[in-house]
Simulated scan of single mutants.
Amino acid sequence: MIRSIFFEDYELGAARQSAGRTITEADIVLHAGQTGDFYPHHMDEEWCKTQPFGRRIAHGTLVFSVAVGMMAGEINPEAFSYGYDRLRFVRPVHIGDTIRAKVTVHDKRDHPKRPEYGIVSERLEAVNQHGETVLACEHLLMVKRKGEART
């Protein structure tokens, strides 16, 4: 869906949530192949049995990518991702876990160098099927102001 939302339109506390997505072994294997991260925490089931978490865990970067992707359903031509801050992998995600993502607008501020834009900060949180937070970060959006809109 494409919808223009300008800096002034973002409301503090506004939230949206994704549907669930189950993390599979194929996700982990594909991510390992794409990134070259074949660390035993992700690939060696027998070794993982000797560790405190007891079984294979999904790459944190995989969980991050999936959570971001689940929230990317709306296309706003007046905004783009400016980056992510304070990324934390709070709990492990295992094969068969289902995660959901939620974003909440928690801050708006002027862009320090580009007055035609503002910065909108969204808290992104991924939770598992038990309602436990598995990932948290801050997503920064650079958003065009209405007064500077193209005609």
Rank of each mutant, 00 (worst) to 15 (best):
T24C: 07
R21Q: 03
M71A: 00
M1K: 11
E74Y: 13
S81F: 06
S4V: 12
A72L: 09
V66P: 01
L135G: 00
T24N: 03
E116G: 13
N128S: 06
G96F: 10
H59C: 05
H130R: 14
E132K: 05
S121R: 04
N128Q: 06
A14L: 05
K49S: 09
V93Q: 03
L30E: 15
V66L: 03
E46S: 13
K49C: 09
S81R: 03
F6Y: 14
A19V: 15
K146D: 11
T61Q: 10
V68T: 11
Y82K: 06
G118Q: 02
V66K: 01
E45F: 11
I75F: 13
F64G: 02
Y82T: 01
P40V: 07
K108M: 07
S81K: 05
H106G: 05
E122W: 05
D97P: 07
R91H: 11
M71F: 04
V29W: 05
N128P: 06
T151Q: 15
A136S: 12
T98F: 12
P77N: 10
A14K: 10
P40H: 08
G33K: 03
F38Y: 12
E78F: 14
A14I: 06
T50W: 12
I57C: 00
E148I: 11
S4H: 12
R55E: 14
Q17T: 14
P52T: 12
Q17F: 11
E74V: 15
F80D: 12
Q129C: 10
E11L: 10
V29E: 06
I28V: 14
E132Q: 12
V134Q: 01
E11M: 05
D97N: 13
Y82A: 08
S65T: 07
D107Q: 13
S18L: 04
F53G: 04
F53R: 13
V68Y: 06
K49R: 15
R55K: 15
V90G: 05
L124R: 02
R21G: 02
S18I: 03
R16V: 06
Y117D: 04
V143H: 01
D85K: 07
